[in-house]
Structure formats: C-alpha cells, structure tokens
C-alpha cells in the first residue's frame, strides 16, 4: 500500500514584490521554501507509515530547481520522491496541474496500490485550494478536504475516517479508500530531518519524470491546458490615511480627537 504526498515549492511570499516599472513579479533573489501546509502533509504521511506500515512517495511538479523540495522530502524519510518537470508543464493553472499530478499518481499505482493521496490545504502563492479536489475528481477518489485528524485507516474494510475542520464546526466523516485528503496546520507538528538523513538526501540522485514518461496530451498540460490565464498583474492600491494628534505626548487628547472625529461622522454605535 502506498501513500502519495503532493508537495509544492513556493516562493517565500513575505519577500515577493512587484516591479513598479514592468508590473511583473520580481523573482530574483527570492528564497524558495516547501509550501508550509505541505510540510504537514509530509509529516502525516510519515506518521501513516509508522502506524500502518505503508510506503510513502512524494511528488512535486515544478521547474528543475524544485529538486530542493524533493531532497527535503527524502531527508524526512519518504521511500520515494519524484520531480515532475518538463518545459511543457510550465504556466499551468490548477486544472493542468492536477492533470500532471494525477498522471503521476496513476503511474505509481501501476506498481503499488495507492491507498491515500495527501495534499496541503492550499499553497501560499497561488492560494487556491483547488489542486487537491482536482486530483480526487480526476482519479475518482473519495474527497476529504480540511482534515485536522486522521482517526483511522482500516486497510481490510478499505475505509478512512477523518475529522474535518470547517467554519464553526467539525465533521466526522468516513469514506472508502482510495481517498484524497487535504490537511490543515493543526493536524500535526512537522519533525525536523536528522543531520545524517539530510546529508544523504543532499547527495542522492533525484528521479525526474518528464512528459516522455507521463505521455500526456500536450494540449492538456501547462499553459495550453489551462483554461485560466493572468491578463493583468498589479500592486494593490492603498490610500494613505491621516495621523491624528500627538499620541506620544498626549495620549488622552489624541484619543479625544479620534472619538470626536468618529462622533462627527456618526460612526459610533450610540
């Protein structure tokens, strides 16, 4: 039995900026990290390995430099890690991305039965939360998003029971496997890789699958396979406000100024 974990390499969004002249993203010098939610998906996959003796495969679609993400997965102890990389995969929206990831999962399933696919709740760059449902729908798997606890996986009965975290409520749900789960941060605390494992991962060869391996129709991947496209990119506009009084020297007077202003504009609830 295999658990497949989907991991994306993302720019550290705290440092992303937009070039005011060209209105494009400044990509130079921005550090890349493993999508934070995916570190929780990885951790949960490894816990399933400990609990049920399953094997874990990590897959990531991205440019060649996403190799770093694959190595992190290896250092953490996954059994197999594959980088899905091909120029023709570039520029993908979520529909095209889930196509490539699904094809890779199907291929892995030829060798070992896939019980679960784990994804993060969302990424911090595209931030759509759409890829997980895309994979589940394409592969006809049970879809269980926003999981904050895997209660039980019954390999004999072929069911999984999870708790989902929704707005103001939790849901306890049971469904058949294979299932695709997306996980929230609360599910676990990711472990750190041990130094020897890190050294080993740094020197291992990374397995790369391109489209000669996956054999997907070129019109169903990358930019061509993406129904959505970005027509404009710009900085969010912000109107600068007014600083009131001197809050340092006269906090009480400044507070009064604010209250008077709000009152004059009839903004107070009384």
């Amino acid at each position: 039995m295999l658990v497949v974990c989907c991991v994306k390499q993302v720019p550290d969004t705290t440092q992303v900026q937009i070039d005011p002249v060209t209105n494009t993203l400044v990509r130079e010098g921005i550090p890349f990290i493993v999508n934070p939610y995916d570190t929780h998906a990885l951790e949960e996959s490894l816990r399933l390995k400990d609990r049920y003796g399953v094997r874990v495969a990590a897959i990531s679609m991205g440019p060649p430099n996403a190799e770093a993400t694959i190595r992190k997965a290896v250092a953490l102890g996954v059994d197999r890690a594959i980088l899905l990389s091909d120029r023709s995969f570039g520029g993908a929206d979520t529909l095209a991305t889930s196509n490539v990831l699904s094809a890779a999962i199907r291929k892995l399933a030829e060798e070992d039965e896939v019980a679960l696919v784990l994804c993060g709740k969302q990424t911090i760059d595209g931030d759509t939360a759409q890829v997980g449902p895309g994979i589940a729908t394409r592969l006809g798997m049970t879809q269980l998003t926003l999981v904050d606890r895997i209660e039980d996986v019954d390999m004999d009965a072929r069911t999984v029971r999870v708790r989902r975290k929704l707005e103001g409520r939790y849901e306890l749900v049971q469904g058949p496997i294979p299932a695709m789960l997306t996980v929230v941060r609360e599910i676990n605390r990711p472990r750190y890789p041990a130094v020897p494992a890190r050294l080993m991962a740094a020197s291992c060869t990374v397995e790369v699958w391109n489209n000669e391996v996956l054999r997907l129709d070129p019109v169903s991947i990358g930019l061509k396979g993406s129904p959505t496209w970005v027509s404009r990119i710009f900085s969010p506009e912000r109107a600068k406000g007014q600083v009131l009084g001197d809050g340092e020297k006269d906090p009480a007077g400044t507070a009064r100024l604010l209250v008077d202003t709000l009152r004059a504009k009839d903004l107070l609830p009384f």
């Binding site: 969004t13 911090i124 959505t228 496209w229 990119i233 969010p236």
Partner: peptide, 9 residues
C-alpha cells in the same frame, strides 16, 4: 502571493 500582488484572471 500572500496579497503582495493583485491579478486579473
């Protein structure tokens, strides 16, 4: 990108 940019899709 965490709100750093706006995009029209």
């Amino acid at each position: 990108f965490g709100g750093n940019i706006m995009a029209t899709i």
